[in-house]
Design a protein around this nucleic acid. Structure first.
Lengths: 222, 222
DNA sequence: CGAAGCACGTATCACCGATATCAGGAGATG
DNA sequence: CATCTCCTGATATCGGTGATACGTGCTTCG
């Protein structure tokens, strides 16, 4: 029944389901749903909890490295992947629903905090794990929800990586492995933005266009 | 009518309103609502748009400093205050609703980007304003929505300030090179030196040579 | 074997989004 | 001034949804 509800939720266009449709998909009538879950909110909570279970399992299968910072980075990307793969379920879990969803936030925070405690154990954390977990989760949810809301504007994976590196840099002592490690790319990006907003006359239009393409290539270099 | 809808939305417990209640509050019947807004979604879009108008006005009344970075900081805090004061309206504006809300995101991004362009004009930005705007807005929305969802966990203003500083540190330069004459020339010089000491493979030799001549011209520009 | 308890279905209520249809009034046109 | 047209609003209604009271048949245990 939870499976049917989640399937209908994923298939729905307005991120909403009807208890009738869920019951019909399973082959029972409405009162059994209300006997089991008591409420539609109860059903949605159970669906969110099942999603949380899968999220935790996915994350548990991921964290096997000895390096806690690598695990933390993988955790962020995994969070983004989960949001991308299950947008309706993700929104059900992390969007502000009144009187609900508390368990999801709490459990994700606990998972995150566990990893952060490991980071603190190796002296890589500049604040307490609880505070860092709140910061990371809030930013992660924001990027994920923005990506769900406006894929055209926010689906660029570079955005997620930049946000991740920015937040990690604020709570970790060591610079993150991939974050702004390449000064060439940073310089190329800065020059491109500066050229874009100050109409320089040192280059002709064709030259500027070609330069822009090169800077783009440099900035996108792996 | 928009006023009644927003009032009912703020008073509702489940962040939802009924078209009947809105009509009854105004004193008209349902068909007039559907004549005016065409749809319930149209009504909600109009409410979100009115909220966006108020948000823009509040922000316009705020940005008066000559320092764009101070304005950017105030903009973040103002965003958080708006979310705290109008949680239902805020969620209507920034939560992923299908087929809607595009205008809100776009307009907020434009406002943010305008301030960021001013930051870039004084050489305080390390990336292009569009990218920085996406990053800042996503993080800001994430902290705000988390605060709405779980006030007990995320209402600490220190969290918002930490997130703000973390994101700003990722897109802003340190205010040390204040007396920078020309940010374009500085960026060109920096890129040239960076390219010289790190053999990048993104460009062929001939391209790198031509790029070097152009950077020289830009750096030598009066 | 019989009765109690429970699970399920039937029928129904109140509410909501949306619309077809009709009544009344403002303004144009002769 | 009469009439026609267009616009605005109300009435009535339809399909659907969350939720529940009540009856019925099956299971289970003494």
């Amino acid at each position: 029944m939870l499976d049917a509800a989640e399937r209908l939720l994923a298939a729905s266009t307005d991120y909403d389901i009807s208890t009738r449709a869920v019951c019909e998909a399973v082959g029972v009538t409405q009162p059994v749903l209300y006997r089991i879950f008591g409420d539609k909110q109860g059903l949605l909570d159970a669906v969110a909890d099942a999603g949380m279970e899968r999220y935790a399992a996915q994350k548990a299968a991921l964290e096997k490295t000895g390096d806690p910072i690598a695990d933390l980075t993988a955790g962020w990307d995994d969070h983004m992947a989960f949001a991308r793969d299950h947008p309706a379920l993700y929104q059900l879990m992390f969007t502000p629903r009144p009187e609900s969803g508390a368990a999801t936030y709490r459990r994700v925070l606990d998972l995150l905090e566990a990893t952060l405690v490991r980071c603190a154990a190796v002296g890589a954390l500049t604040t307490d794990p609880a505070n860092a977990a709140r910061l990371i989760l809030a930013a992660n949810v924001g990027v994920a929800l923005s990506q769900i809301a406006r894929p055209r504007l926010f689906s660029d994976p570079r955005l997620s990586h930049e946000a991740r590196d920015a937040v990690f840099a604020a709570v970790l002592t060591e610079p993150s492995p991939r974050g702004q490690a390449d000064p060439v790319r940073a310089a190329a990006r800065q020059l491109r933005s500066q050229l874009a907003l100050s109409g320089t006359t040192a280059l002709e239009d064709a030259e500027a266009a070609l330069l822009d393409r090169w800077l783009d290539r440099i900035a996108a270099e792996p």
